[in-house]
Computed example of a mutant assay.
Amino acid sequence: MKKNGVPMGHVAQQIAKEDFASFDYILCMDESNLRDLNRKGNQVKNCKAKIELLGSYNPQKQLIIEDPYYGNDSKFETIYQQCVCCCRAFQEKAS
């Protein structure tokens, strides 16, 4: 992230039931996350969030964004570029 000038002052947290009623979109990286989120979202009475794979916005049609944790630096760079591309495409569609 430092290489790409992205600040890293964030805090991670688990998705809460309230998030499904508060957010318009909840985006995830892989099919396992998608199944889990859909299951949790189905348990929320007033779920308004559209739950999708971030990769569904990838112009190259790479739906799954793999966890680069066990890869080398080039794997992190590839995933970073994939995320940037998908986020830009999502932003264009959502605006």
Rank of each mutant, 00 (worst) to 15 (best):
T78A: 07
K75M: 11
Q81Y: 07
C86E: 00
G5D: 09
Q62G: 03
K45M: 13
K40H: 04
K45C: 07
D30C: 07
C87T: 12
I51G: 03
Q13P: 05
F76T: 08
M1Q: 08
P68W: 01
C47G: 12
E77T: 10
K48W: 03
I26E: 04
M1Y: 05
C83K: 01
I26V: 03
Y69L: 01
I79P: 00
N33Y: 01
N38R: 10
K2N: 12
K93L: 13
N33G: 06
Y57H: 09
A12P: 10
Q81N: 09
R39E: 02
D73R: 13
A16R: 04
Y80I: 00
I65P: 07
L27K: 03
T78Y: 11
E31G: 05
V44N: 08
R35Q: 09
R39F: 02
A49N: 10
T78E: 15
G55W: 12
A21H: 11
A16C: 07
K40F: 06
E31T: 06
C87S: 12
D36P: 00
A12V: 14
K61V: 10
Y69I: 01
K75D: 12
G5W: 05
F90A: 03
K45T: 12
Q13W: 10
Q81T: 05
C28Y: 00
R39V: 00
F23Y: 15
M29G: 08
S56A: 09
C86V: 00
N58A: 07
P59Y: 06
N4E: 14
Q91F: 05
E31D: 14
F23E: 14
T78F: 03
K45N: 14
E77L: 08
V6N: 09
A49E: 09
M1H: 09
H10P: 09
E31W: 02
S95F: 11
I51P: 05
G41S: 06
Y80Q: 10
I65W: 01
K48V: 09
N46C: 05
V84K: 15
L27E: 04
I51Y: 05
L63E: 11
Q62C: 04
N38I: 00
C83H: 00
M1R: 08
L34F: 05
K50F: 00
C86T: 01
R35Y: 13
S56I: 04
P7Q: 09
D36I: 00
P59R: 04
G55V: 00
K50A: 02
F20P: 02
I65N: 06
K3T: 02
D67T: 11
F23N: 15
S32L: 14
V84S: 14
M8I: 02
F90W: 13
I15K: 02
E18N: 06
H10K: 13
Q60E: 15
V6R: 08
E31L: 05
K45W: 13
Q62H: 11
S32I: 12
N38G: 05
I65C: 07
M29A: 11
Q91L: 03
A94M: 02
A21Y: 15
Y70T: 07
C83D: 06
F23G: 13
K45G: 02
D67C: 10
D19H: 08
E66A: 06
E52A: 12
